[in-house]
Amino acid sequence: MNLMTNILINVIIAFFIGSLLFGLQRKIMARIQGRPGPPIIQHILHTFKFFIKESAFPYTAAMPFYIAITAMLSMIWVAAVIVGPVTGGSLLLIFGIYAVHKIVEHNAGSSSGSPYGKLSCVRAVYSAAAEIPLFAVLVIIYFKTGTMNITGLINYQTVHGPLLYAIPLAALMFFVLIMSKAPYSPFAITKGKDIVSGYETEHFGLLRGYLMMSESIAWYMLLWVFLTVFLGPISIPVYLIGMIVMSSIIAFINATTPLLNPNHSIMMQVTFAFIGIVGSFALLMI
């Protein structure tokens, strides 16, 4: 297939599946909490609804930074799609993209001048401590397999079996990392409802729709990376089932746990990181 067509199709698939998974997650959360909940396509409908709404840009915003930051979020996740499903490139790059996502969260918040955005920005800086499990995951995967290439990792797993069984604690850390990006999750301190919508508060209308599109792609990509890195060569139906299962598990956790306060959220993640790092190295040494 033509490379550009391939990229476009993958981006569109990522957007639709990511949005549907977000919708599913809300549905499951609602059922657990005894509500009927919105239809599964609600997240897509919301995205499009916001996208065509009349928008204004705040008087106080830092232009054109305020708009460019949303384009940046979209750009990095398009890059993730290229690195992941299209070319099977460097895993390190995916984690670089994850780091830039943090920066976007931080600066989307502060670029508007709103106090809610500012609080979210400060929380994003705090949650940079949650980067420790990220690097630990990378280090452990590399020490186990000797490669940082996604294609290389798939090949390794065809020979040696899924990494999920070999380095379960790294998988756990990665799972916590994915969970911190889910809406309503106990670790989603940058989007907590106590600060309205966190860094997205002042990005309304069109820009909110745009951010939501990128977030759907991000969600799809995070699950894709998890399934590829820890389960290895799997077929498309297994990918779909895996994504649905993971979204459901995360929905269950989100529905039953409150949002942690920033300090607790960070300490929880650091604790997971500590257990994961020490345990994984112990497992590698044996």
Partner: peptide, 13 residues
Amino acid sequence: SLVSIPLFILSLG
């Protein structure tokens, strides 16, 4: 694709 896809969506919006 890195430059044009995001810009296309943004400008379309």
